[in-house]
Amino acid sequence: MNFRRTRPEEISVNLTPLIDVVFLLLIFFMVSTTFTRETQLELDLPEAASGNPVESRNQQIELTISAAGEVAINDKALLAPGLDTIKSALQRESGGDTSLPVVITADGQASHQSVITVMDAAGQLGFSRLRLTTSELEAGAGQ
Rank of each mutant, 00 (worst) to 15 (best):
L132R: 09
Q60G: 10
L26R: 01
A68H: 07
Q60V: 11
I65S: 02
L130M: 14
M1D: 12
L26T: 08
V21T: 14
L78F: 01
L18E: 06
A141N: 11
E9F: 11
L63R: 01
Q109P: 01
L132N: 09
P81E: 01
P46I: 09
I73R: 01
D84T: 10
V54F: 12
E9T: 13
D107Y: 00
R57V: 09
V115T: 14
S135W: 04
D97M: 12
I27K: 08
A141Y: 04
P101S: 07
Q59W: 08
T85C: 03
E38N: 04
F28N: 00
R4W: 13
H112L: 14
N2M: 10
A110K: 00
N58L: 06
E70S: 07
V31Y: 12
S128D: 05
E62C: 05
V13K: 09
A49R: 00
L79D: 06
F23E: 11
A139T: 12
S12G: 05
K87E: 09
L125S: 05
T33N: 01
T105P: 01
E93R: 04
E9V: 14
T39Y: 13
L24V: 15
L18R: 10
E9A: 13
R7M: 12
L83N: 13
D20H: 14
L137W: 04
T33V: 05
E62P: 02
A67Q: 03
K76I: 06
F35I: 11
M30K: 04
N74T: 10
I11N: 00
A67N: 03
Q40R: 10
T134M: 09
G123T: 08
V103K: 06
I116D: 04
N14A: 15
S66R: 08
A141I: 08
V54R: 15
V22L: 15
G140I: 13
D44Q: 00
A121V: 03
R4C: 12
L15S: 12
T6E: 12
A122W: 11
N58G: 06
S94V: 12
F3M: 11
D20R: 15
F3S: 12
A106I: 01
L137I: 07
A48T: 08
M1Y: 15
T133C: 06
S94Q: 07
Q113K: 06
N2T: 15
S111M: 03
F127S: 03
A49L: 01
T16W: 14
E55H: 04
I86T: 05
L132D: 08
L125T: 04
K87H: 08
D120G: 06
E10K: 07
R129I: 05
E42P: 02
M30L: 12
F29L: 07
L41K: 02
R5C: 03
L132P: 08
S94E: 08
A139C: 04
A48R: 11
P53G: 07
P81R: 01
R5N: 00
V102H: 10
G69V: 02
S114V: 13
V103I: 11
A67I: 04
A121S: 09
A106D: 02
I65Y: 14
A72P: 01
N58S: 08
D107R: 02
R37F: 13
M1P: 13
N74S: 13
D97I: 10
L79A: 11
N52I: 14
I65E: 04
N74I: 03
G123L: 09
G95C: 04
K76Q: 05
S114C: 09
L137M: 04
L90D: 08
